[in-house]
Design a protein around this nucleic acid. Structure first.
Ligand SMILES: [Mn+2]
Ligand SMILES: [Mn+2]
Ligand SMILES: [Zn+2]
Ligand SMILES: [Zn+2]
Lengths: 162, 162
DNA sequence: TTATGGATGCAAACCGATTGCATCCACGGT
DNA sequence: ACCGTGGATGCAATCGGTTTGCATCCATAA
C-alpha cells in the first residue's frame, strides 16, 4: 500500500530498538514470546508508515500465522503501548510500532490517488486544544488529525487549481 | 447517541433552510422527490450534530423506509453536496445537513464517555496544511480533525490529572 | 518433567455497508 | 388525465474488516 520511500525530504520514523529489546518488553509484562509475535514485531520494525493487519499478515512470509492471530496481537501490542492505531478514514485500521517512551502522537499526509504516506512532524498549537477543553469543561482532550491530498505523481495532468 | 443540548456556551448549527428549499434543490438536479427523501431530509434538519444512517432510519417514525434506502440516499445527498460525512473513528459514518453554499468543513469535540458532541468552530491546521502541501508538492490538500475527551458529566470522580 | 494458563488455528459470527433484482412510482410528455 | 420510462425502493444476499468461541498447542514457571 504505502510506497517505498524514494527521496528523503520528509521525516521518517527510521526505527528502532532491536527485536530483542521488543521481546524483552513482552517478557517484562509476562506475555509469551511466540513465533507469531516475533514475526509480527519484525514486520512492524521494517515499516516506517502505518500498515494494516492484512498487510502485516501478508508480510509474514515463512513465519505465517492465522490472520486472527495478527488481529489479536495488535490489540495486545496496542494495550501494551507498543503500537499505535491510526485511522485513514477508509475503514481499515493501521498500526505503527512505537519508540520506547514515545506515545506515538503524530499525523500523516496521505495521497488519495496512490496511498503514498508522508510522516508529518509537528502538531498545531496545543494551546488551542486546551482552550477548547477549558471552554467546554472537557478533560483528557486529544485529537485525531490526518491530511489528504494528491502527491506530485498523482497530480492531475492539467494542474488547474491548487 | 448525541445528547440533546442543555446549556449553550458552544456554537450550534441551528439550521436551516425550509424543507421546500431542500427538495427544490433535488428537483433542480433532476432527482425525484420521494417520501423517503423528504423524511430523511426532515430528520437531518432536526439534528444539529452528525447522525448515523441507523439513527436516521430510527428517527423516521411513520415515514419508515428500508435501511438500504437511507444508505443510498445519503450517498446521493453527499454527491449533491447537501450533506457532509464525518468520521468519529468508531467505524460508523455520520452525516450533517449543509447550509446552502457551505462546504461543511468543521470539527467536533466528542465525549468518549457518553458520545456527547460539541460543534467546534474554527479550523486550526490550515497554515500547517499549506506548509505541508508546499513542502511535499501535494495539491488539493485537506484534513480531517476531531477532538476527543471527557465531558463534565463523564469526568472521573477524582479529577486527578487534566 | 510436568502442570497450567496464555496463545494459536479454524471456523463461525458480527456489523456496517453495498448490491442485484424485481417492483414501484414520480414526473415529463402526450 | 393518461402513459411510458428511468430513477427509486424493498428485500435479501453479499462483502470486507473485525471479533469470538472453542479445542488444541506450547511457552514458561515450578
Ligand atoms: Mn506515522
Ligand atoms: Mn458538526
Ligand atoms: Zn499519489
Ligand atoms: Zn460525556
Amino acid at each position: 500500500m504505502s510506497s517505498p520511500c524514494s527521496r528523503h525530504p520528509h521525516p521518517h520514523r527510521l526505527i528502532q530498538q532491536p527485536l530483542t529489546e521488543l521481546t524483552e518488553k513482552l517478557r517484562s509484562k509476562s506475555r509469551k514470546i511466540t513465533a507469531p509475535r516475533q514475526a509480527i514485531l519484525e514486520v512492524l520494525r521494517r515499516h516506517q508508515h502505518p500498515i494494516t493487519n492484512k498487510e502485516i499478515h501478508a508480510a509474514l512470509g515463512t513465519a505465517d500465522c492465522d490472520l486472527a492471530t495478527v488481529y489479536r496481537n495488535l490489540h495486545t501490542l496496542e494495550d501494551m503501548g507498543m503500537v499505535r492505531r491510526f485511522d485513514f478514514g477508509d475503514g481499515v485500521a493501521r498500526f505503527e510500532l512505537l519508540e520506547e517512551g514515545d506515545d506515538g502522537h503524530h499525523h500523516h499526509l496521505v495521497c488519495t490517488g496512490c496511498s503514498a504516506v508522508v510522516e508529518v512532524d509537528g502538531c498545531f498549537p496545543t494551546e488551542l486544544e486546551q482552550a477548547l477543553a477549558r471552554r467546554h469543561g472537557f478533560t483528557r482532550v486529544t485529537h485525531k488529525l490526518e491530511f489528504f491530498g494528491l502527491c506530485p505523481k498523482c497530480a492531475p495532468a492539467a494542474p488547474a487549481s491548487v
